[in-house]
Amino acid sequence: MAANSECGEMTPLCELLTEQRISKGWSQCDLVTRLHTLSGNDSVTREEVSRWERGKRIPGPYWRQWLGDVLDTSSRELELAAAVARRRRRTLID
């Protein structure tokens, strides 16, 4: 669940993914295995999940949909968290 910060802003996707994965007791490899199994697509790697969780990349709509299914999180919550991540990224660049 995307908790609100003290400023009233939602959690960015990188933090949300990490929190959800850890709350399930999964390693990044466990998450990748579940994504492979559910999606039938083995193109995502543990390294890519690490990039998502460190905020180096934001998963696109395709992987956000599968992440929602695997983590039992709504697409809307993931979309909002991705928007927060993009907004933070733009703020750091400006």
Rank of each mutant, 00 (worst) to 15 (best):
M1Q: 06
A2S: 14
A2N: 06
N4P: 04
S5A: 13
E9W: 03
T11W: 03
P12R: 02
L13V: 11
C14Q: 10
C14H: 08
C14P: 01
E15K: 07
L16R: 01
L17P: 02
L17N: 02
L17S: 04
T18F: 01
T18K: 12
R21M: 10
R21A: 11
I22F: 03
K24T: 03
G25P: 05
G25S: 06
S27H: 04
S27P: 09
Q28W: 04
C29W: 02
C29P: 00
C29M: 14
D30N: 15
D30H: 07
V32I: 15
V32H: 04
T33R: 15
R34Q: 15
L35G: 03
L35H: 00
L35P: 05
G40C: 11
D42R: 09
S43H: 07
V44L: 15
E48G: 01
E48K: 07
S50M: 04
R51G: 01
E53L: 10
R54H: 09
G55M: 06
K56R: 12
K56V: 11
R57G: 00
R57C: 08
I58S: 07
I58C: 11
I58V: 13
P59F: 02
P59M: 09
P61C: 06
Y62G: 05
Y62H: 13
W63Y: 15
W63N: 01
Q65A: 13
Q65E: 12
W66H: 14
L67W: 00
G68F: 05
G68V: 02
D69H: 05
D69Y: 01
V70Q: 10
L71K: 05
L71P: 08
T73I: 15
T73H: 02
S74T: 15
S75P: 05
E77K: 04
L78V: 08
L78N: 05
A81C: 03
A82S: 14
A82D: 06
V84E: 14
V84Y: 00
R87P: 03
R87T: 13
R88N: 14
R90M: 12
L92G: 08
I93R: 12
